[in-house]
């Protein structure tokens, strides 16, 4: 049910954006990679990212999001947002990616430790990674003309 709503909304917003702002200079692509763990010769565990395969509940994937500016002017005030997909649980920023701001309600964003969740008894408890609904990056630096910026986050398949 949730899944269907998500898809429906996305299609709607995509269509709206296409009408309002046809082919802007900035493009965004997302890819999903699976984490695989292998024992290295020195006894440590190496985590490698491979094209997504054999993902079962309990496995981690990494979502990579790349913004490219093909225009002639720098793009400033860049905000990248990604709803955590249905069935997935946010599991922190990926290696080499800036940490995103997160939101548990889709409205207010912040660091996870600062967010709280209202409980049934009218109180509030600290939010956990399982509560995260949307992750968001606000880029401090403009994406220069012809430049690109990549961010990524880890997620756990529930």
């Amino acid at each position: 049910m949730r899944h269907a709503l998500l898809l429906g909304s996305l299609l709607l917003t995509t269509a709206t954006a296409a009408v309002a702002a046809p082919s802007g200079p900035v493009n965004i692509t997302t890819t999903v990679l699976a984490e695989t763990r292998a024992e290295a010769a020195n006894g440590t565990t190496q985590v490698r990212l491979v094209p997504v395969r054999r993902v079962v509940p309990g496995d981690h994937v990494v979502y990579q999001i790349k913004v490219t500016n093909s225009g002639a002017k720098p793009a400033s005030g860049v905000v990248i947002a990604n709803p955590v997909p249905a069935g997935m649980q946010y599991a922190g920023p990926a290696a080499n990616s800036p940490a995103p701001e997160v939101s548990v309600d889709g409205k207010s964003f912040g660091q996870l430790a600062s967010l709280r969740i209202a409980t049934a008894d009218g109180r509030a408890r600290p939010a956990t990674a399982a509560d995260v609904r949307v992750v968001r990056w606000r880029l401090a630096q403009p994406v220069p003309a012809g430049g690109a910026q990549q961010v990524a986050f880890r997620a756990l398949l529930k």
Binding site: A17, G24, V26, T29, T30, G71, V79, P85, L157
Partner: peptide, 27 residues
């Protein structure tokens, strides 16, 4: 499981936004 990101940005004083492709895998 589908994932789709979106980005908003300012170019030359106008704000625009665009959504990404959908990255999917089957559980």
């Amino acid at each position: 499981v589908n994932n789709q990101a979106s980005v908003s940005y300012d170019v030359g004083g106008s704000t625009q936004s665009v959504s990404s492709n959908v990255a999917s895998f089957v559980v």
